[in-house]
Each structure stands twice: as structure tokens, then as C-alpha cells.
Design a protein around this nucleic acid. Structure first.
Lengths: 259, 259
DNA sequence: CCGTTTGGTTCCATTATTTGAAACTTAGTC
DNA sequence: GACTAAGTTTCAAATAATGGAACCAAACGG
């Protein structure tokens, strides 16, 4: 995972450093960060220092390791509450979840990747933080494709440039061309499938969540396994899922932008 | 809520802007931010642009309003998972919660404030994001005082400087001197009380979570109301709560810093 | 016990970025 | 169609970031 030298000046670079620490997934030493950083020693050092006294990072003085700071948790609480679809969508997901008795995902786009902001697992109730906040690829997941299909040409190009096109399974679309063809179909149809493209045995139907103006603000999916069901059965739920998406869109529009 | 012009260069200023948007708690227009910002128009404008490109903020193009971006949610997921005590503490909180049948709070220190990272409500299971991530004052909460009591002189001074000493109730400690006296007692005793200092009728017993080296990494509290119980009854649980804190500390030390 | 390596921190002249007043461009009013 | 408010761009001056190199401290090896 390389920091792709963003062109956003000092702030962008500092945020890259933040991502590096986040990417490590465990406390990291200065030297480790230095090893796969594009920055020279002193520069990286200063960034770490700045981020640390801003509370975005935390330095364990005993071990000399850096971890993400708690200020992030606070900011994220606000982000989740005010900017994600999750709080708005919650009641609608509850209903859909009860009706379908399948796993439900609510996702948004983040820098070309899929960010899951809520999840319902028919079996047991949600473990919020543990599940929400996870990221996944866009080109081979139902929610990902549903969102990609409705991006502007410009945004779509930017997103495609960020896809790895790794071939997870035999049915993964592994080139931009194949993906674009699929996206056209999705746009015509109004919903997307995941035909075991990311994980064998896992299938889903996904619909975009669109504003009245036609901008994608998220996606919603009903997921199952090939053992329990099949695509046709999922497709039968399409209208129901679209309806939920529409409700969420309407609510989001009136709630997040009052007046 | 004023951005207190931090001395951390460009990055610090950008993060201040981020806080401003977070602080608003709703989508905000450029002009609103400009109104209570110390930055001149062009500067603020460029920061917003940078943060937006970085996914830390989101610009609703229809309305021209800024909200926190989803990248924060992703970062926070990592922060919560790797840097907060919550995942480590979870099983121990489960046990304590079952035993006491009272509300449990797990908190950490963030820039002189108390950040709640997990909460158990005897009645219903946790709503993670909805509860975790909230912040509160340090000088008048059980967990806050428990942590303050074990800070180094330097860190304590810095934390005290950030307290408002607002008098929420008649029993709130409203000066640094009174607070410091209380902290001495807490250090001798090993645990802290909240004697309706923040909210009338709400009392708690709180213990610090300390590393073997004696550094505070968090605090844990059992909260109740004056209607249901009293301080003496809570104090009777002190040893039990300390034990849980010790378990969490031990686990945190071996788990978060493997090898 | 001392020379050496490794990991982390500080210096400081150079360089590049940020800064912000002012000019400009929309979009909205009356 | 002049007037206002809100947002965007420009550009020379001011400032902050940069990074090579020196420095320090602790751990290591002989």
C-alpha cells in the first residue's frame, strides 16, 4: 500500500501519513513507516509530530509506536451521524431486514472504494463499529457496481483508475471494458447483481440510492449465498429493494438539507 | 466554538477547519464557516477545497454545503479497532455489565476531554456509533477525574487549562484548586466518584485503567442514579471494578503491543 | 569497556507553499 | 438592468515546509 503522492500540498501529504498508520492496522514504529514512505526522515518525523499533537495520532511513549488517535473517533462519530446515510436509513433497513431475513448492506463511495456504513445480519443484531467502516472494492461488489453505474463520466473515470481489477473468482470482471459494459446494463435495468464476483458462493442484488437530481449518494444490497437461493429469487425482490432505496433517498433529501 | 489557532502549521489549521465543520453538526455553507473563522476568505476556501478533494469533507454540489466526509468513517473504523480500548475491553465489560446490571462507561482522554469509546446499558444492548464517540468534560465526570488523577504534572496542567469549570450542579468542582485537591484523594483511594457533579441525580464510581508502567490509558465507570442506589453501595463494588480495569489493562498490554 | 550500529531527533540554509488583499464572476434581488 | 451577496481566482510578498547532514542515545558486539 503506497501513498500515491497526492497533489494536495502539505495537508494531503499529512493525510497520506495518517493513512499509512491506519493501513498498518497495528502500532507502528517510526522506522517502519520510514521504510515504506516516500518522505525523507525529517519530513516524516515532523508530520508524525504534528499529527500526534493534534490528536490524530497517538504515540505510545513506552514503546515508541504510533497508532491512530482518539480525535479521529470523535470526528468520525460526527461524520457518521451527520454525513453518512446510516442514521437516516436505519428504520428502513430494519424493516427490509425483517422482511427479507437476509443480510443487508448499506454502502457509500469513498475515493473509488466501497465503504460500508451499515449492515444487518438477519441472525444477530449489528455490531456497529466492527462492521461499519469496512471498505471493499467497487468493481466486483453489488453495491459498488450499483454506484459506479450512476457516476458522472468524469467521476467514473477517476473511480475506474483506482480499481485493482484483481480476479477474485472466475466471474470477476477483470478489465475496465468489461466493467463498463456491465455498468451500462445496470443503468438500463436499475439494479446490479453480484454473481459471485468477489467471493465464491456469495451473491447479491444491489440498487443505487439517488437524489431527485440523479446524483448517487449510496447503495443498498440484499446478500445471500448460492446454497440458500439464486439470482432469480433475489431479482424477485428488486422492486422491494428499490422502494426502500427510494424511501431512504427521500428521507435523506429532506432531512439532511432542511429548509 | 472558536478554532483556537493552533501552532501546528498548515496541517493544524486544516484540522481546525475540519473541527469547525464537525462542530456545526449539520451541512454548512462557505459563508457560515467564514463568519466564525479566523481565516481570510481565500485561505478558508483553499482549505475546504483541499479537505474535500481528500475525502475528509464532502461538498454537496446541489446545495453548496459542506459535511464531514466518509473517509473519516473509514479512518475511525481503524482507529476504533486498533487504538481504542473498546475491542480489547469488550468481553470484560460484558461480564461486568451482567454482574452489576448498571450502566457501564469506558472512556479515554482526548485533548483534555473525556471520550466515551464504549457503553453498556443494562436494559438494551449497545448502539455503538450512536453512543461511542461522544465527548464530555473531564473535571466533573467520574471517568474524567479518574484519568486526570493519574496524568503527569505536565499533562495534567495542559488538561486543566482546557477545562471550562462550568458549574453544572451545586456539587461541581468549579476551580482548578478544588479539583486538584479532589484528584489527590482519588490517587490515594484508587477510584473516583461522581457526586452528581455533571447531572443531578447521576452518580458513579470510576477507576483508571493503568499500564504496568503507571500510565493512564483509560477509565471505566459504573453509573447509577440517586433514586436507585447511593455512593456507599457503589463503593462496595470498587474492588470488582478495579479488577475489571486490571484485566483490561493486562489484556491491552499484551494484545496491543505483541512480541 | 569501548567502538559500532541502529533508531530517533534536531539544525538550518534553501526552496516551495501558503497567504490574503483585491479583483472578478456568477447568481439572486428589487 | 443596476445593485448585492456569495463564491472563485489571481499574484507578489511572506512564511512555512523541506531534507541533507549532523547529532544523540541506547543497544550490540567483540
Amino acid at each position: 500500500m503506497e501513498a500515491q503522492s497526492n497533489s494536495d500540498g502539505t495537508v494531503g501529504k499529512a493525510l497520506d501519513v495518517l493513512d499509512m498508520v491506519a493501513g498498518a492496522g497495528r502500532p507502528v514504529r517510526f522506522s517502519e513507516l520510514l521504510a515504506d514512505s516516500v518522505f525523507p526522515k525529517a519530513t516524516l518525523y515532523r508530520f508524525l509530530q504534528t499529527l500526534t499533537n493534534q490528536g490524530m495520532l497517538m504515540l505510545d511513549p513506552d514503546r515508541g509506536t504510533y497508532t491512530l488517535g482518539v480525535r479521529l473517533v470523535r470526528l468520525a462519530h460526527a461524520a457518521w451521524a451527520q454525513s453518512s446515510l446510516a442514521p437516516v436509513a436505519r428504520p428502513y433497513l430494519d424493516v427490509l431486514s425483517a422482511e427479507t431475513a437476509e443480510t443487508i448492506h448499506l454502502a457509500q463511495m469513498d475515493q473509488g472504494q466501497v465503504l460500508y456504513v451499515d449492515k444487518r445480519n438477519a441472525a444477530r443484531p449489528v455490531e456497529m463499529f466492527a462492521q461499519a467502516g469496512k471498505v471493499g472494492p467497487a468493481y466486483c461488489t453489488g453495491v459498488g457496481k450499483a454506484m459506479l453505474a450512476y457516476l458522472s463520466d468524469e467521476d467514473l473515470q477517476a473511480a475506474i483508475d483506482r480499481q485493482s481489477f484483481h480476479r477474485f473468482t472466475p466471474s470477476t470482471y477483470d478489465t475496465p471494458a468489461k466493467l463498463r459494459a456491465e455498468l451500462r446494463l445496470i443503468r438500463e435495468r436499475g439494479y446490479a447483481f453480484d454473481r459471485e464476483e468477489h467471493e465464491p458462493g456469495i451473491i447479491c442484488i444491489a440498487v443505487p440510492i439517488l437524489t431527485r437530481a440523479g446524483r448517487v449518494i449510496g447503495a443498498l444490497s440484499v446478500t445471500s449465498t448460492t446454497q440458500r437461493t439464486n439470482l432469480a429469487a433475489l431479482e424477485a425482490q428488486a422492486e422491494r429493494v428499490k422502494e426502500t432505496a427510494a424511501q431512504i433517498a427521500a428521507e435523506a433529501e429532506s432531512w439532511r438539507f432542511p429548509q
